[in-house]
Amino acid sequence: TEQADGINWELEEIRKTLPELKPHIDLTPVQQSLTEMQKLLTEMNRLLERVGNLSEKYSSKWIDWLPDFSLLVALKWIMLVLILGTAALAGWYGAAAIRGLFL
């Protein structure tokens, strides 16, 4: 709405500044198109709000029992498991190699 008002104000200023162009330029279709776009954006925002409310209502039932989730914490745990697993495999193969030297 503010953008449309700003554009309308700028158009009026242009018309005042250049009076000789006034009869040659009809900006009514532009204003109508801006008004239509504003209506469509308002409707889309209303629909997105409704969809957001619906998804919150249905998803919160299933997610309430889960603990708080942070992607960073999950990545830290995954890295810890990978490092421990790598160390365990290295130890296992190292021990097998040492045992192979004595057999």
Rank of each mutant, 00 (worst) to 15 (best):
A90Y: 07
E13F: 11
S70L: 02
K16L: 07
L18K: 08
W65P: 04
E10S: 14
E36W: 15
L48I: 13
W92I: 08
V73I: 07
I98F: 12
S60M: 02
L54Y: 11
S70Y: 01
E13G: 05
T35H: 13
A97G: 04
G100I: 04
L84Q: 06
L34D: 00
T1A: 14
S33D: 07
L18W: 12
D68P: 02
A96F: 10
K39E: 14
P23R: 03
Q3K: 12
K76I: 04
K39R: 15
Q31I: 02
I78Y: 14
L54D: 04
Q32W: 05
I63D: 09
N53H: 09
L54K: 13
K39W: 11
S59N: 13
I63H: 09
L103C: 08
E20H: 15
S59F: 15
K57R: 12
A97W: 15
L66A: 00
L54N: 07
P29R: 04
L72T: 10
E36A: 13
W62D: 12
P29S: 00
K22Y: 07
L101D: 06
K57H: 07
W9V: 09
T17C: 09
N53R: 12
T42G: 08
P19I: 03
R50A: 05
E20M: 11
P19K: 06
I78G: 01
R46N: 13
E49G: 10
Q32H: 09
L54P: 02
G52Q: 08
I25E: 02
V51A: 05
P23S: 01
E49A: 09
G85M: 03
N45F: 08
D26H: 04
D68Q: 12
I78Q: 12
K61D: 07
G94A: 01
L103R: 15
L27H: 15
G94F: 06
D26V: 00
W62M: 15
L18T: 03
W65E: 14
A88L: 08
A4H: 13
E43D: 13
K16F: 06
P19Q: 02
R15L: 05
W9C: 09
G100M: 08
P23F: 00
L66E: 02
L89A: 04
E2W: 10
L34A: 00
P29H: 02
Q38Y: 08
L84N: 06
L11S: 03
G6Y: 06
V30N: 03
I7K: 04
P23H: 02
Q31N: 05
L101S: 07
A87H: 09
P19T: 02
S60K: 09
Q38G: 10
S59M: 10
D5S: 08
L21N: 02
K16H: 07
E10Q: 12
W62H: 11
Y93T: 10
N8S: 04
L101V: 05
L75Q: 15
S60N: 05
D26N: 07
A4E: 14
S55V: 13
